[in-house]
Amino acid sequence: MTMLDDTSGQTSAPRQTPQALIAARNIAVFLAKAPPSAFGLIVLAVLILSALFAPLLATHDPYVQDLQNTLQAPSAAHFFGTDELGRDIYSRLLYGSRITLTIIGLVSIVVGPIGLFVGTVAGYFGGKVDIVLMRLTDIFLSFPSLILSLAFVAALGPSLNNAIVAISLTAWPPIARLARAETLTFRQADYIAAARLQGASATRIIWRSIVPMCMPSVLIRLTLNMATVILTAAGLGFLGLGAQPPLPEWGAMIATGRRYMIDSWWLVTFPGLAILSVSLAFNLLGDGLRDALDPKQMNRR
């Protein structure tokens, strides 16, 4: 039997670069090419940069009150004006981006693994395990997420950390459903059968074979979820159940600005725009990721 012919011409990818890095770079390039997802990437970059360099970019201390200068309209001294206690809104928005990023980050870190675990285990084992886990998921799904978070925060006490816990508790079920649906399509595949014939344990099959296949759609779903997470966090802040004053959380800023809204439009407009653009950016980014990670696009990567 002769060697196969095309071994001489293999110069495709340099051996040292890990496949994951190449894929990540290609996805980023793909996202940057389409205008909507490029907008998403830019807003996300601005968000991260302003969170990182908030102390450098801010013109004022976000917590210092200046009762001589309350409710000042936007001007050169205060780009976005001042609030009812004379605090600089521009600086508060910059510091608020740190809170937003913390919420998104922590919620995603908690929700992704929980959803993935519940979904893949339910999907792979099926039967009773599936029934128990999925009915549990259904119970969480059957409440509107804001109401359920409200209930959790009310029980745990209002604070930023409790808001994060509450949002996480309500955000994992859609991920679990998705991961289960994906797992059901892979569990009969021959490569799973082959892994079983090699003596692989269920844990190993789920971790090594099923989780990598579920990752793209879970990542997309997480990104799309972030918009909801931001809105829920802002909603909780607005209701006074999330971040507590004087933390510059965007939703809480709108809540306190509401009373002065008629005379001083800038109090609610700028935090509102920030929430709008960030949640829009995550939606667009999620859509872009869906295109980038589409299996049909695999060959292009």
């Binding site: 595949a189 021959d190 059968a193 892994a195 014939l197 003596g199």
Partner: peptide, 23 residues
């Protein structure tokens, strides 16, 4: 299990479905 795996192996019909696409 381990003895069975080392006694008996299987080759599947569809080589496009029997290799994990990300491995």
């Amino acid at each position: 299990l381990n003895e069975r795996c080392r006694t008996l192996q299987m080759v599947f019909q569809d080589p496009y479905g029997s290799l994990h696409p990300r491995h």
